[in-house]
Amino acid sequence: MTDTIEWLETIGKNANLRHAPAEELAHTLEEAGASEALKAAVKFEDSSRLSTELGNKPMKVDHNPHTGGHEEEGPDHDDGQDAPSQPPKPTPSEPSPGK
């Protein structure tokens, strides 16, 4: 039996399912015997309902130091010295990464 993670992967790579109206996708999942949490998440367009089955792990999404692209010369935050300080001076040779 397909579990919820497998269903999500299937939906993610199937053009019909990925772009199906919520009602239609919910019907497909109902017929296929998907979990209650997944069916509710689709039906109510609320992915937080998956947490009842898969848990809720809060995730930090920042992978960048926010020092204006000059992180190597940024304030020394190591060894507990994490108090706010002035931003580093610009060094033109180090452009900021873009997104």
């Binding site: 960048n64 130091p65 926010h66 020092t67 304030p75 935050h77 994490d82 706010p84 002035q86």
Partner: peptide, 17 residues
Amino acid sequence: LVLWQVGLVGDWSLTRF
């Protein structure tokens, strides 16, 4: 103009989210 990480704008402490 595309601005990234506006939710963190102005944080130079690197300790805030």
